[in-house]
Write a protein that binds this DNA or RNA. Sequence first.
RNA 1: GGUCCCGUAGCUCAGCAGGAUAGAGCAGCCGCCUCCUAAGCGGCAGGUCGCAGGUUCGAAUCCUGCCGGGAUCGCCA
Length: 581
Amino acid sequence: MNLFADIRALVIDALDAMTEAGALPAGLSLDNVTVEPPRDPAHGDMATNAAMVLAKPARAKPRDIAEALAERLGGDDRIASAEVAGPGFLNLRLAPSVWQGLVRGVLEAGMAYGRSDMGQGRRVNVEYVSANPTGPLHVGHTRGAVFGDALASLLDYAGHEVTREYYINDGGAQVDVLARSVYLRYLEALGREVAFEDGTYPGDYLIPVGEALAREKGEAWVDQPEEVWLEEARGFATDAMMDLIRADLAALGVEMDLFFSEKSLYGTGRIEAAIEDLRGKDLIYRGVLEPPKGKMPEDWEPREQTLFRSTAHGDDVDRPIMKSDGGWTYFAPDIAYHYDKISRGYDELIDVFGADHGGYVKRMKAAVSALSEGRVPLDVKLTQLVKLFKNGEPFKMSKRAGTFVTLRDVVDQVGPDVTRFVMLTRKNDAPLDFDFDKVLEQSRENPVFYVQYAHARVMSLLRKAEAAGIDTETSAFIAADLGKLDHEAELALAKKLAEWPRQVEIAARTHEPHRIAFYLYDLAGEFHGLWNRGHDLPELRFLQEGDPATSQAKMALPWATAVVISAGLGILGVEPAQEMR
RNA sequence: GGUCCCGUAGCUCAGCAGGAUAGAGCAGCCGCCUCCUAAGCGGCAGGUCGCAGGUUCGAAUCCUGCCGGGAUCGCCA
């Protein structure tokens, strides 16, 4: 159910009828006709630009079209008034019964209100986090994890078939570093003196891994060369790190559908197959790259390498896929990985990267475009930095000093719900301030609290209603006389609820889950506003003492609000609060 | 220097497929808060949407060029 879509359909029908009647020329495209809430509520409930969009192709004056359209729309009993305004807008006011019906519709649909079929079941792969398996997740990963997860839920809610995927970078040199670091911890666990030099990971989180290895291997690896232990240590260590990362994600409430190992691409011919595919398209060649324009690296020297002709698909320069020692560059398995995703039949791919990977967007898009022959779009979403604060003071992070903040630190301190919501209070490409104290504050300026408080208030209302002997089953609210919801303040809240399906579609289309968080904040504000009006106007209170019938009608509105808040928070992966403590 | 992102009220930020007089919170100023649904309420003020062009009936939004901030820039992932 989407009221804006319903009214748009009404407008389109009216325009078709006008064409039928000869008032408009045949064959006009109505694609650009929109029905939207006007910026200024004084202009009405909905506005359509139909007359302005059609004026030129119809060779008519916008106001004339608008007048004729207004006349036709006025015949529908949902339309209370249709007025031409400004350059040719048609402002519509809807009958109160429409809004009352909407509240009933929300209650009937429940959590499904706002679900959309815009995705048409298209299969979307969302790849996110994909952190190197060399240590616990930190705050930066947290944002990517929350963003990707919310985006996946959002797309699911909007009618897509979504896969959540994590690409394990377990094939590169950093895994050797990890293996050597774990080996040192292993020796340490056996009582040997060890030194952690530069180029190793000194983190404490490897201590238990070394201990486990010591229990398993005993003295077998002591004083042995790398050939003996490196490969096995690599596997052991990455497994341990992935267990750690999985647990971190679980603490945040993130559950992946698939973990894809980079290593699985090596030695299996899968990288070669992807590159062969490109070669067959004449996109692989041996050549020498120009140095980067303007900035000449000190050690630059012309070098012949194996290149991917990414410029043929929109990149700025061609990219090397092979190192001079004959090994693949990191880009080659990335190509193979995306080749795999394409071959799994997705209609759309989304990669969520940290902003520091912005430089890889074009080449990745080029690869996907080439491999899928333009069939599969790839959208890369970059998440900006998280700046940490403690009570307004910047919180310095330093890996060296051991004060870098992990996902666990954050979740342990403020909980998964607050973490997730706050991470979505900025759009993904804007830096985010995260203050450990402020996010827990119980005040209006804290959106997490403000939204949760709205939900908790409704729950408290329900408890009170129940205590007063009122039937609080949803069916009872649906059956109530909703015609009693006729105050402009009540209708205003209903109108906000009507926007929900629209916001879902916009957020899904733009791949911007933060819009859900902003909408919920808005909705909560509208709800608190109505609640506050009850201070001065007792007839606006939801519970009317001694009048269960009216109470039931009045409570349909907050209950519908709670349903939408729950659905919205559900997309964000946040549990709605039953009460505030 | 190339590429990408950002630039909107004093501050932090929204701004929907281009739409009407550009919004919110905070801070500031003025009221209210013995009744009631604690975690306040109502109001006022605050803007050349970085700058300059262009497209359009219409631009914060699209295009181009500048300015400022950030990220990144051939065998590291």
